[in-house]
Design a protein around this nucleic acid. Structure first.
Lengths: 216, 216
DNA sequence: TAGAATACATACCGGTCGGTATGCACGTCA
DNA sequence: TGACGTGCATACCGACCGGTATGTATTCTA
């Protein structure tokens, strides 16, 4: 196994495990075991568990950035972008039985305040997500899909809050059908999409095949 | 110290500590130390840490139920109830520097799925909260404050999701000013309050003095 | 007033945690 | 060919975890 292979294996394994469970519960030993490497290798590549987590957030972001860029591709109408986003959230978080909220959404609640670097990584992650939301909202506004213009940066935050809440709820109550109804309804309401456009688009997730491969 | 005193001290201390941090991080030893009792006393009253947590959720609920009943008192107009709720969320979660989301909102992310009883306790807690939301929504609808009637049970969930998201965000980004704007804005939007009523009421939190004492 | 139950206190347990010290195979380059 | 840095593997560490065994003071009961 080459250098980068071991590193990536650790990052991917950490993501998967933390994804399925959470940061505090997943131990270094288990990450190593699942990744098929030893603890020596782990601490050869990462100086601490927290350090791995920080790098994993960056790695995670790099992975889904492609998806997001596809979802928010300018060739799609904003409404389709929104629908794609909703589908993506299902795809990513509700595909199988092990339904969990996004670990990075939740991680803020899982980590002691003491680790400043980790908190910082999470801040950045959420901030970037909000930035994506903002771009979508601007498109929606420009396209005349929204009932009234407001503080768009605020709306981007509202979107984030709501999605976060839904995903966390899904962790405790993995009721896919309910989530499937609540997520779009809440987003349409929060964004103030004109009602004539509600549910007007059908899922076009097939247009983003790369994700299905990556998530498989 | 009488029996019930020790029990209550443990429950209160556990609440406070978990509130400030989280379930997995707060240890039995620390709870005992802060409560001024020994481990023997702890395990005399509670059969396990998880058991304490379950009882603490019930205790917590019993404590804030009074507040909620005051907030949602029928003598208040629904709009005032909503405003009171918003003020209450600030009061409870954003009062001092140690800004955290509600631990029971977050706890789902902190606990391994293995502990079924804990998950159950959390389910009940969120379900009860949603029930309160539903009552408020019905009042708002009956009072003609909402733009359109929809699935009110769904709206109650949407409220819960959003509040949860905002509170969790506050954990990582304790920006009180922003939260203070986002929380009402999101709720008004989600509930579809007629815009003529937005921000029309002023905080009447003074009408709920019991809370300030209890939280102090 | 004897004795049983209650309400703890103290000391300790096995296990697991994140992290480390050390050794060694192997490629690189002088 | 030998010194050296890289990329690990193994064995182990102290701290801490939730939980327990046991002793004891107090109170309630018969």
């Amino acid at each position: 196994m080459s250098v980068s292979e071991t590193r990536e294996k650790l990052l991917e394994t950490a993501l998967t495990l933390i994804w399925q469970s959470n940061y505090s519960i997943v131990g270094v030993n288990e990450i190593c075991k699942q990744a098929g490497v030893t603890k020596g290798a782990f601490y050869h590549h990462f100086e601490s568990k927290a350090s791995l987590f920080c790098e994993a957030t960056a790695y995670y972001w790099q992975v889904i950035k492609k998806d997001l860029d596809t979802i928010f591709s300018p060739v799609n109408s904003p409404l389709v972008q929104l629908e794609n986003l909703i589908q993506f959230l299902f795809q990513a978080k509700l595909s199988d039985d092990s339904v969990r909220g996004c670990p990075f959404f939740n991680a803020g609640a899982q980590i002691g305040t003491d680790d400043a670097k980790v908190i910082e990584a999470l801040k950045n992650l959420s901030q970037t997500a909000i930035t994506y939301n903002l771009a979508l909202i601007k498109s929606l506004d420009a396209g005349g899909y929204m009932e009234r213009s407001g503080d768009m940066e605020q709306q981007a935050r509202l979107m984030y809050h709501f999605i976060h809440g839904v995903m966390s709820y899904a962790y405790v109550q993995p009721d896919v059908e309910t989530i499937k109804k609540d997520l779009p309804e809440g987003l349409y309401r929060l964004l103030g999409i004109k009602q004539m456009y509600w549910y007007s688009t059908s899922p076009t997730w097939e247009a983003v095949p790369s994700v299905q491969q990556e998530r498989a």
